[in-house]
Nucleic acid binder design. Sequence first.
DNA 1: ATACTGCACGACCGGTCGTACTATTTAATG
DNA 2: CATTAAATAGTACGACCGGTCGTGCAGTAT
Lengths: 217, 217
Amino acid sequence: MSTSPTDGRVRKGDRTRQAIVRRAADIASVEGLEGLSIGRLAGDLEISKSGVFAHFGSKEELQLAAIGAAVDIYIEHVVTPALAAPAGLIRLWRLTEGWIAYSRDRVFPGGCFFFNASAEFDARPGRVRDALAGAWRGWRELLTTEVEAAKAIGEAPADLDAAQLVFELIAFLETANGISMLHDDTSAYTRAGAAIRTRLLDAATDPTALGPLLTDR
Amino acid sequence: MSTSPTDGRVRKGDRTRQAIVRRAADIASVEGLEGLSIGRLAGDLEISKSGVFAHFGSKEELQLAAIGAAVDIYIEHVVTPALAAPAGLIRLWRLTEGWIAYSRDRVFPGGCFFFNASAEFDARPGRVRDALAGAWRGWRELLTTEVEAAKAIGEAPADLDAAQLVFELIAFLETANGISMLHDDTSAYTRAGAAIRTRLLDAATDPTALGPLLTDR
DNA sequence: ATACTGCACGACCGGTCGTACTATTTAATG
DNA sequence: CATTAAATAGTACGACCGGTCGTGCAGTAT
């Protein structure tokens, strides 16, 4: 007999599983994906070690699940809110604002999950690194899409190098995260915000029109 | 009686100690400072585990020694060569060029040692994080000094925000390192170089005079 | 020759890791 | 109510971890 979609056992399992990956992502943002241990995770959640393990079958699978959970949280906190803004430079600005809030407010206790995880795995080939690289690509493509949209509607000149602009924006965001974490210094976010605004106004066809729209909220 | 400075035993001990920390820094750049294990290190160097351990007394001390070794290597590859250039924007440019070479040529097999180590420890208070934060401060102050020198000799306007410029330069460098490591994509260094050059010319009092001096080597 | 010093060694400690295998509990179904 | 399947618990394993200890040995000083 196959599983019913409302099977209480499965629902309970799913809830546990979700609780595990959510906590795993939090821990990994501080201790790293490798430092994340199944026993520690089980202790925190007051479940048995084997209960945790059974959900994933291997540590690597747990790490991949944690990355998936982190992507969901990232989308929820950074991407979705910005989608309310019109496509183009304004939405791009909102994305960076959302990102700064996501990092500054420590949605993950260790700061940006992907900053930490990528630094940890960028020199270790395998499925974990591939998953992280894919997440990064998605984020970069999202930003690039907005720059292209800005070009399409005349907000930005057609010869603007979108990839270069996106590179620079991401650089400001990630570095603000790193500095603020290492030195407990939130002024890095102010610097990043200033740099981003300058870059955006620089890229705009009509800076005087865009300027007032780039407001903090 | 105390030890003579030319004691053969001490010299030999110093040599092995140096070999250990140098290898430790290499491994840590890939596996992380926590992933670095004394046993693994001993196996690689074909010395006994306790022989390695005796030099440091604790794992944390070994980690701190590895950071010290990394600082030395960093200075040797990035700072010292740039000191040949005249103080100011040109030396600043040479410093960034040296940094890109240091990262691109994988002086550490895992890319920039401090990028990896900082991301690993930025959320874990303790002596290791303090040491890393200190190293970062030194690097930032070095760059800031050059910006101030540029202002003092009129290369840059007196109202230039040095800290902001340094923040942006570091952002480009670190992000290039991260992207190139994660995606095996050296084009990030080209982007960083372009962004830095633009930023420097932007900051210069006389960009047309500075431009020709910012040559690749 | 003798006493001393410092490095490196092998054996071993308790503890934790990821993982496997075997109950037991819980809930849906016939 | 009996059966079945899924979630969870319990237990044990081999490997490795950081760290301790006593010892051997080579270089130095007297």
